[in-house]
Amino acid sequence: MNFRKILSVIVGFGTIGLLSSVFAKVQGMLFPSSLEIFINQELADTNVSQFIIKLFCVWVSCFLGGLITTKIGGKARENLIVGTLIILVVGWLWLSAVNPIWFWVLMILGVLPCVFLGYKVISAMSKP
């Protein structure tokens, strides 16, 4: 793996982490109760829409991370590494927050497809 590919993995992973954090912060500013849905079971049961927004934000972050990874010089392998690292982070968060299971399963199932969608978009745009 050359320097450019290593850099693409680091920047792609960082992009996903940064954008996920920014989206969560914005969601918390718009909907203050979204910051408590993982610790308050009553909110978790009634605020399904907040989980869906969080899920969408992470998937968008993964898509953009796939775009960045590919734009810097990563190929399918580097995007797979980025997606796998994000899945490991999501798994760790799942162990920390636990509920609801459907949210974490959907998030994990969506990470790799979203990262690879970003890869495919850049790949398709660069073909003559």
Rank of each mutant, 00 (worst) to 15 (best):
M125Q: 14
F56A: 15
V105C: 08
L7F: 03
R4C: 01
S33I: 13
G110R: 02
R4S: 05
I39K: 15
I68T: 11
L85C: 09
L88C: 11
M107F: 06
M1H: 14
K127Q: 07
L67Q: 10
S8R: 04
I68A: 05
K5M: 10
K25N: 08
S123P: 02
V60R: 09
P100V: 04
V98C: 00
T15R: 02
S49V: 12
I53Y: 01
L19K: 11
G91I: 00
I72P: 07
R4H: 01
I52C: 00
I68C: 04
W104A: 03
W92H: 13
L117S: 04
V98P: 01
L7P: 01
K54I: 10
V115R: 00
L55V: 02
W94S: 14
N40D: 12
I10V: 15
V26Y: 12
I101L: 15
V48S: 08
F3A: 14
T46Y: 04
G110Q: 09
A44S: 15
L95I: 08
K25C: 06
G65L: 09
A97V: 10
E36K: 13
L43I: 09
F116S: 05
A97Y: 14
L64I: 03
G65R: 00
G28F: 05
W94T: 12
L106P: 00
I6V: 09
M107I: 07
N79D: 12
G12R: 06
L109K: 00
I81V: 15
L112E: 11
F3I: 14
G65P: 00
I72D: 03
L55Q: 09
V11S: 02
F31V: 01
K71Q: 12
L112N: 06
L18Q: 04
V11P: 05
K127H: 08
K71F: 15
G12K: 04
G118T: 00
D45Y: 06
Q27E: 13
V26T: 12
L55H: 08
V89Y: 02
L106Q: 12
C62Q: 04
T15N: 04
L30E: 02
L112I: 15
M1R: 14
A44R: 13
I122N: 08
A24P: 01
I101M: 15
W94L: 10
W102C: 08
G17C: 10
V22G: 11
L106E: 08
L117D: 04
L117M: 14
V115N: 03
I16A: 11
T46V: 10
V111Y: 06
W102G: 01
G14I: 10
V115T: 02
F51I: 04
Q27H: 08
G65A: 11
E78Y: 12
A44V: 12
I37P: 12
L64D: 05
V105H: 11
L112S: 06
F31L: 03
F63I: 00
K54W: 02
I6H: 03
C62I: 05
R4Q: 06
M125Y: 04
P113S: 02
R4D: 08
